[in-house]
Nucleic acid binder design. Structure first.
Lengths: 78, 78, 78, 78
DNA sequence: GTGGGTTTGTGGCACC
DNA sequence: GGTGCCACAAACCCAC
């Protein structure tokens, strides 16, 4: 491996690790929100379920829109 | 559930969903870095392995310190 | 589902359940060892930490070999 | 820590690690059974669900028996 | 469509 | 008893 490639490799690894730190930070933030909610008497397990269900719904809705777009385009309506 | 509680619930869900969007964004960024590296001829599978190994190493080092602290505390040395 | 398939299904489930019983038994044995150690004055929390750290060390060593293999293969050395 | 204690410590760690190896072996066996079932056309996801449901049922049944025992004893019927 | 890896969810377990 | 933590199990997604 050339010196240049090694340098690039190092840069890549560092960029990924930096981003993973950011990700870990955000995951910590999410946990904090849930902990706070828990302190107010909410059931965290259920809250997590709500979030995941809404995400699913959103995905389904977007897929439906995609299908709709496809059909509309197919019949020359846009 | 009172109106106030409903309002709080909505706020909590929204905050989590906002953070999850951020997280998804960062995960996208990580993927981009890997894609870019792949375009330069690096083997993504190996890169991922390297990153995870470095994380593991870091974890081990921290664990070792934790165990050491345990022992020092156990023998009354702090 | 044919009768034969039902019979196979039954056999599969029973084999898994038998193995899970074995597993539960071993987990019980592990707990006994720790309880015994506790009775002799050892700090179980530390013991568990030591075991997990040693496992982590082992994992890291294996991972390092895996990465090394990857590289050797990548540069066509095998 | 005395030499005797160190020796005991070593024995304890080794016993636990040996048991954990056994446990890992059994977990591997369970995986093999599922893989085999998959090869015969069974849906592993569903199989796992069946096993976990039966385990839950068993727990519930045992609890019900415990309650039954309690009542029977309470009314002096055993 | 099959396997591997990553992420998420759940249960048990120890500690307070 | 109840709370936080950790290991196990499940679901998910991508690449091949």
């Amino acid at each position: 491996m050339t010196g240049a490639a090694q340098s690039r490799l190092r840069t890549i690894i560092e960029r990924v690790e930096r981003l993973e730190e950011d990700k870990a930070g955000i995951m910590g933030d999410i946990k904090e929100v849930y902990d706070e909610a828990k302190g107010e008497g909410f059931d965290v397990k259920i809250l997590r379920k709500v979030v995941s269900l809404r995400k699913l719904d959103k995905t389904v809705r977007e897929e439906q829109e995609t299908v709709l777009d496809f059909y509309l385009t197919a019949i020359g309506d846009r």
